[in-house]
């Protein structure tokens, strides 16, 4: 079974999905990610799906589940690099990925997390 690597960049965890996801690897990824968030105290998780060309309702639910898990552990999830065809398919499937933030690419995803973090600090200061 292929395991999806979880990369750490500062206090952000990056997951780049480059393989055809099997049910087993998805479950493993969710466990790995939860472990790493706790271990590193990450404040953000970025899931890069630039290489994903085909989605089904299972993948859609996976993204929502990962986001929910991360939020429980106080980390924001950003899904980046979704292809137009994938977005259209998800809409047709009726999945709007509520609660998941999205960005056009990895760079914008990182910027979004930094921005969110900054906003939180400002709010706290007030």
């Amino acid at each position: 079974m292929d395991r999806v690597p979880v990369l750490k960049l500062g206090d952000i965890l990056i997951v780049s999905i480059q393989i055809d996801l099997q049910d087993q690897s998805v479950l493993a990824l969710q466990e790995d990610l939860a472990d790493r968030v706790v271990a590193t105290g990450a404040r953000g998780v970025i899931i890069d799906i630039t290489a994903v060309e085909i989605v089904d309702s299972f993948i859609g639910r996976m993204l929502a589940t990962i986001a929910a898990i991360s939020r429980m552990l106080d980390a924001e999830t950003v899904v980046v690099g979704m292809r137009p065809a994938v977005a259209i398919t998800l809409v047709e499937l009726g999945l709007s990925l509520g609660g998941v933030r999205t960005a056009l690419n990895l760079e914008k995803g990182v910027a979004l997390l930094n921005h969110l973090d900054g906003a939180q600090i400002v709010t706290a200061a007030q």
Binding site: V78, V79, A87, V91, A103, L104, K108, G109
Partner: peptide, 12 residues
């Protein structure tokens, strides 16, 4: 609405 939601999914 579909178009808007799809764009949102992509982060726009």
């Amino acid at each position: 609405l579909k178009t808007v939601v799809a764009a949102r999914l992509m982060g726009a």
